[in-house]
Write a protein that binds this DNA or RNA. Sequence first.
DNA 1: TGCGGCTAATTGTCTATACAATAAATTCCT
DNA 2: AGGAATTTATTGTATAGACAATTAGCCGCA
Lengths: 245, 245
Amino acid sequence: MPQIEAIELDGHGPVYDQIKRAVTAQIRSGAWKPGDRLPSEADLSQSLATARMTVNRALRELTEDGLLVRRRRAGTFVAQPDAPAALLKIVDMAKAIPARGQTYGYVCETDDTVPASPAIAKAMRLPPGARLQHVECLHTADGEIVEFEERWINLALLPGAAQAGFDTEGPGGWLLRAAPWTEAEHTVSAVNADADLARRLGVEPGAACLVLERRTFQGQDVVTYARLTHPGSRHSMTERFSPQR
Amino acid sequence: MPQIEAIELDGHGPVYDQIKRAVTAQIRSGAWKPGDRLPSEADLSQSLATARMTVNRALRELTEDGLLVRRRRAGTFVAQPDAPAALLKIVDMAKAIPARGQTYGYVCETDDTVPASPAIAKAMRLPPGARLQHVECLHTADGEIVEFEERWINLALLPGAAQAGFDTEGPGGWLLRAAPWTEAEHTVSAVNADADLARRLGVEPGAACLVLERRTFQGQDVVTYARLTHPGSRHSMTERFSPQR
DNA sequence: TGCGGCTAATTGTCTATACAATAAATTCCT
DNA sequence: AGGAATTTATTGTATAGACAATTAGCCGCA
């Protein structure tokens, strides 16, 4: 049970917002980890010299955002970031496939430390030649290939990726543990499989494939870039959302 | 300036939640339209016999959800649902294309009242043969085709669609006015263009195309079903979001 | 008419307090 | 020991009151 030190406000803007920023910073920096318990509202309001309602609003909104989990009498905890949002149900195959009752399989084809090519460097906002861990792997459901994953991890931010060993587990799970709280950006497009891709995915050359590109950020820095390719006819992804914004 | 009548609470659950439901119901039902002004917090708290903080929380959360817009001194208004969420930037081409500085073009190819085919009926949760307005149209940017839209509108819910006339304006804009507040569900997939689709989109047969299917709901009922097809190489869509949930 | 300043309506935030709901922890009883 | 009852820490909601911030609308003046 980790001891959580007091946080400090920065004096900018509304107090509830300062509290939100301070708590978020602790979580994003990794000082507070998933499962850690926060001080109670009473403790926080005393140590920050604010009303409990103000602390309550801050923690309530962070809970809305999914950053915290709260249980009456038990307390407030840093959330486990294990339920990827909306579109991304598709992204972590290691979880999505068993969830549909299929058996999940994983094959690692490449796991190397490489210098960034110009194209990847640009996508990751890095200078060409920056050190990256490059992983290529396949995800299968009941033996059928459902996703080809190409991934580049920024070793400057996550040096551990070079020794992680992605031969039995995909990068998705490891990243979730190593850098749990991030932002992501997605791009979806369709391409015809070229000879190489067709061979890897086990489809006819020219077959339509769905490509999902994902960049994961910590602040302004790109932590990892992934290109996830799906045989078109075999996969689709669904998202449902409430009111417009 | 429409006069807004008092709303009523239902006594179930927290008061702020009752207020949220009551306001949402007014908006979803169309009784309060985009741009309408709500009573002030002071008025509402008096007429509902609750504290202003409670009303404030309800309206603040609905504003978070994008249902309302608030301006100091001016008041609280039903939001204009004109900024489609995340993924859907791609959906309303009539807005997305000018926003990128390109000139937008529209061609209507079909606008008929038809009975629902079995496949469409299933997708729209309707009995086969139900009356639908069926529209097929093209969206262009700087003269190039960027989207082929096939749309079916449930005439039982929106009888006006039969007389709307989609020859100069796409169904997107009309629907936004006719049924502004809804929920939507999206599915993305990739297909190879068949001969017919290739001809319509002006691409080679077999070219990979991105297909976005969209079902729009009012409660449990499907208001409209759309299949939006994009020439793969020419289009992609991007979404960025903050912390996981 | 147009501009500048004033007024006041409205939302935004903060506080202090109170009580309800929940469920973990403890005590008590057998 | 184990189960039931009780205690209590913690969050959840509601309230009344206060002041700050914003700005639409009005008034006066040139």
